[in-house]
């Protein structure tokens, strides 16, 4: 083709830096205005939550099951003071320490629940969506049936089955985590299955079929990675649900005994009678911890959700007559042609 007078602008850099390609950081850079505020607030709350869980032994002044120190017993229902900045509970524990240690329990449940459900859910969804037929129909019916189960009921049954009615740290955590797993698998299953069915009809999958690629190769090389885009969002929303189920279990009394681990739901349950007698600190702080942790994770999830959709994503307004002309793909020497010309020269 003949050379033209139009100047050829260089293409945008092919690969942005690693930092800007990381999932959450990329969205953070994209966001503006309120969406950015929400995301930052959510990230900050979540970061505090995680840091507190990791460094609980250093932050908490007392152990979660500690009733006395060198100067004697703490005493029950003591109002906030210098020694106990959030007071003590009806059982005589330090509220501040239990709130801090509770973060650790909460995060363990989230990790176990999501890890257990995400792999099974994705695999089942992928196979079910790609292969289809009777296998797909049976799996969808099972998933629907599980939806009908209240997760709290499952959790109660599981906690009895796992710990045999005895309360323990891992018994409680596993009961909460596994019951949530059972409910979450259908969620991942449905999302991945729907995406797989959509992607199955994409020309690049047909193209792979036409080349003679085997079914597992198509599933894992071409479908899987394209189907997992919405997962970070479900992941965060599920995390907060896991946390709420754990607190609900504890509140109903199926949680973990205070000697085994700190648990916000259990503390709330024990604080029930305090509220009517004007002892506010035993209920407020664990409750606040639940609210903030759930809100942090949910905010991250919701903002990621909005930012993932170009139509919901906010952008800075541009000035009149600003911006560079975008190049049309048409009728200009392709950069490839120029390269070849250079190579030939």
């Amino acid at each position: 083709m003949t050379t033209t007078a139009e100047p050829v602008t260089t293409l945008p850099p092919t690969k942005p830096g690693l930092l800007s390609r990381l999932p959450v950081l990329k969205q953070l850079r994209q966001s503006v205005g309120l969406q950015r505020g929400m995301l930052i607030a959510g990230l900050a709350l979540t970061a505090v939550f995680i840091l507190v869980a990791i460094f609980a032994p250093f932050i908490a002044p007392y152990g979660f099951a500690q009733l006395r120190d060198a100067s004697g017993p703490f005493g029950a229902q003591q109002p906030p003071s210098a020694a106990h900045i959030m007071g003590t509970t009806v059982g005589g524990y330090d509220v501040f320490s239990r709130v801090i240690w509770g973060a650790q329990t909460a995060i363990l449940v989230i990790i176990i629940a999501v890890l257990c459900s995400i792999f099974a859910g994705i695999l089942l969804g992928l196979v079910s969506g790609y292969i289809g037929g009777w296998l797909d129909r049976v799996l969808v019916v099972i998933a629907d049936a599980i939806y009908a189960f209240p997760s709290l009921l499952l959790a109660i049954v599981l906690s009895i089955a796992i710990s045999g009615g005895q309360s323990s740290l891992w018994g409680g955590i596993l009961a909460a985590a596994l019951s949530i797993t059972v409910v979450f698998i259908p969620q991942y299953f449905r999302v991945i299955r729907a995406e797989t069915i959509r992607i199955k009809a994409e020309p690049y999958v047909e193209s792979a079929k036409m080349l003679g690629a085997s079914a597992p190769r198509i599933m894992f090389r071409h479908v899987l990675r394209n189907a997992t885009r919405t997962l970070p969002i479900i992941f965060t929303l599920n995390s907060s649900e896991a946390l709420l189920t754990l607190a609900g279990l504890g509140f109903l009394g199926f949680g973990i005994e205070p000697t085994a681990a700190a648990e916000w739901g259990y503390d709330l349950n024990k604080a029930l009678s305090d509220v009517t007698s004007g002892i506010w600190w035993t209920a407020l702080y664990p409750g606040l911890a639940i609210v903030l942790a759930v809100m942090g994770i949910t905010l991250v999830g919701e903002s990621l959700n909005d930012l993932a959709d170009p139509r919901l994503r906010g952008r800075k307004r541009v000035k009149e007559k600003s911006g560079t002309m975008s190049l049309t793909s048409v009728d200009r020497p392709l950069p490839s042609d120029l390269d070849i010309q250079e190579e030939n020269a």
Partner: peptide, 17 residues
């Protein structure tokens, strides 16, 4: 008539005079 769009990559002019 001049029209600019806000995109993720900054302002892009679509119509120019």
């Amino acid at each position: 008539l001049t029209i600019s769009f806000a995109t993720d990559a900054g302002a892009v002019k679509a119509v120019d005079g």
